[in-house]
Amino acid sequence: MNRDTQGRSAVVIGGTGSLGRPICAALLRAGASHVTAVARHEAPVVPGARLLRADLLDNDNRALDRLVANSDVVVNAAGAGWRGTPDQMMHAHTVLVERLLRLVPPHTRLVHLGSVHEYGEISPRDAADEDHPERPSAPYGRTKLLGSRSVLAAAAEGRTDGVVLRISNVCGPNAPAASFLGTLIEQLHQLPPGSPLDLAVTPDMRDFIDIRDVADAVVRAATAPVAGLVINIGRGEVHAVPTVAQMMTRAARFPRRRVRMHVATMPGSRGGSGAWAKVDVRRAHALLGWTHTICLPDSLRDQWRAAVPPGGSTPGAGMS
């Protein structure tokens, strides 16, 4: 953790979400004096943080305006998620960022969470560094890129002390339910006893990073001299999605003999090999002193355990 965070006040936009909660917790462990989670709806916050219910798109929210204006660090961890509509993504990833940039004073550090999907297609065997061409094809990546570019433009003009952390695919405790792994966990929970798991997956190769490692990167970026930069945050290695699915079923102790996996490519994929999404994380190592610390099997195990209610049993248990 960065000792320079001690005594500072921090605001986390989207602070009750899957990324916002571990970020709040990490800031508190690093010694932040006050951490406020901003969310539109009533939701639990991590111990030690406080909740402010507010909609950042409301132009007449004076409590939020004062809070942001008087904070040392503002983290934007808000997002629409994969299940959002294109309009919801535009508001959450672009319009919200523009509103935030009007509120955050130039001397306040703004840590904006971007996405690996802002790069679009990455060539197989390549690792996208921060200078990689940005050609997203899906609404999620396009709207995230617009938000990131707004932060970078404001930093270049001296209007914000902002940095963009471009995050790879996240996993770990309470990772987004709309993600591939979140959907798999939901499917496992809904299986009747003794039923097989029919799972359709793509042959994609993706870079998975634990949300707790992401939170550590945010804390480091809160005070590091990295304004105006994009910094990739990922494992720096890829795993095949079918392999990761098998790892999750093992974490859930689901009988391997009852897993029926169907690997199918998406229309337009290159040579039937699926997508490749590996990032180069050397800049994070050099400028933040950051590297991932949680191995993928442990991350998936913890993600499964966090999703199992107290006293819950193995999914599909019963008939073999």
Rank of each mutant, 00 (worst) to 15 (best):
V281M: 04
P242Y: 06
P309Q: 10
L57R: 07
V73G: 02
L57S: 00
G158F: 10
A25S: 14
T202D: 12
P225S: 00
T5K: 00
H107D: 13
A153C: 00
T183I: 09
P310V: 02
E118P: 03
A49W: 09
D87A: 14
R283D: 00
A154E: 07
Y119H: 15
P192E: 13
D213V: 01
A127H: 13
S168F: 09
P22V: 04
C171R: 01
V73E: 01
L145W: 13
L184N: 02
K144M: 03
A37Q: 08
L27F: 08
A127T: 10
A80P: 10
G272I: 13
L67Q: 09
S18C: 12
R159E: 13
L188E: 02
H292R: 14
L103D: 08
T314K: 10
H189S: 12
V230T: 12
L113F: 06
G312R: 10
G194P: 00
R253C: 13
A217E: 04
P315Y: 07
R253Y: 10
L188W: 08
G120K: 10
L96G: 00
R235N: 14
W276G: 05
L145V: 11
H112G: 04
S115Y: 11
V241C: 01
R258F: 07
A63K: 15
F180I: 15
N232P: 10
A138K: 15
G147C: 02
L19K: 08
R220A: 14
K144I: 00
L28G: 08
N76H: 12
V35R: 02
R40M: 03
S179V: 06
A37K: 06
D204F: 11
G17M: 04
N169Y: 13
S18T: 11
D161Q: 15
G236P: 14
N232G: 05
A155L: 01
R135H: 15
V111C: 03
A264Q: 14
D216G: 12
L57Q: 04
A30C: 00
V219G: 05
D87K: 09
V111D: 00
S273A: 14
L287G: 00
L100E: 03
V170Y: 04
F208L: 11
R206H: 05
P196I: 00
L57I: 02
G147S: 02
T223R: 08
R8S: 06
S71Y: 01
T94C: 13
E98M: 11
I185L: 13
S123N: 13
I231V: 15
H93T: 03
D4I: 01
L27A: 07
R50G: 11
H34P: 09
L56K: 01
A200F: 10
D213K: 00
H91A: 15
L188P: 10
A217R: 04
A221I: 07
A10R: 08
V35K: 02
M1K: 07
Y140G: 09
V73C: 06
A251K: 05
L288P: 08
V259E: 11
L113Y: 06
I23P: 05
V38E: 03
T85R: 06
D298F: 02
V38A: 04
A78Q: 07
G162C: 06
I13F: 08
L199T: 09
P47W: 04
V38I: 08
Q88Y: 04
T143G: 04
M205H: 14
G162R: 07
P106T: 11
G31W: 06
V230D: 12
E134S: 01
A153V: 05
T249I: 03
A155Y: 01
G20E: 06
L113G: 03
R142F: 01
S273N: 12
G274N: 07
A306L: 08
A240N: 11
